[in-house]
């Protein structure tokens, strides 16, 4: 089962390597990992999508908490958070296919951000499953290159794990 884990860490060099090292040496599987600054410049936020049973996720949380530079760890059920991922996609698109692809973009609320004689570059920001559907729709045209940021997530409602200043 997939779990979304949000980790607030001190914005120090080497923190990311401590976290990724922990996952590999304890045999935890990471599906995606995204890291970036927060409203507090001293704190970074890492969002990890991990695969495993409840016992594994409990261990992941506890082991993460043992790292000195980890300030807070929280895992979310899908219903508790909103998750988004950004993807850029370059597809083959000769003149006769452009209109079809643009229709797909319109329906999926994605954007065309670049175009050449025989390619189109698309941008989509959405939930994980929607990205999968989007990719499936474009596969018949020939996907040349794909790049994704990894999922970031935030709690629904007014609850927060923010560390404050």
């Amino acid at each position: 089962m997939k779990h979304t884990i949000s980790v607030l860490v001190e914005n120090h060099s080497g923190v990311l390597s401590r976290i990724s090292g922990l996952f590999s040496r304890r045999g935890f599987n990471i599906e995606s990992l995204a890291v970036g600054p927060t409203e507090n410049p001293e704190v970074s936020r890492i969002t990890i999508i991990a695969d495993g049973d409840d016992h594994t996720v409990e261990q992941i949380e506890k082991q993460l908490n043992k790292l000195i530079e980890v300030i807070k760890v929280k895992s979310f059920k899908p219903s508790e958070c909103m998750a988004r991922e950004l993807m850029l996609l370059k597809v083959s698109a000769t003149a006769d296919k452009r209109q079809e692809i643009m229709t797909i973009c319109e329906i999926t609320e994605s954007k065309v951000i670049d175009m050449t004689v025989n390619t189109m570059t698309l941008e989509i920001c959405d939930k994980y499953d929607h990205l999968i559907k989007f990719v499936a729709l474009l596969e018949p045209y020939g996907i040349i290159e794909m790049v994704r940021t990894g999922t970031i997530a935030i709690q629904r409602g007014s609850d927060t794990i923010a560390a404050g200043k």
């Binding site: 016992h55 409990e58 261990q59 043992k66």
Partner: peptide, 8 residues
């Protein structure tokens, strides 16, 4: 004292 040891 180490919560990670409990249940590991």
């Amino acid at each position: 004292i180490d919560p990670a040891e409990i249940g590991k």
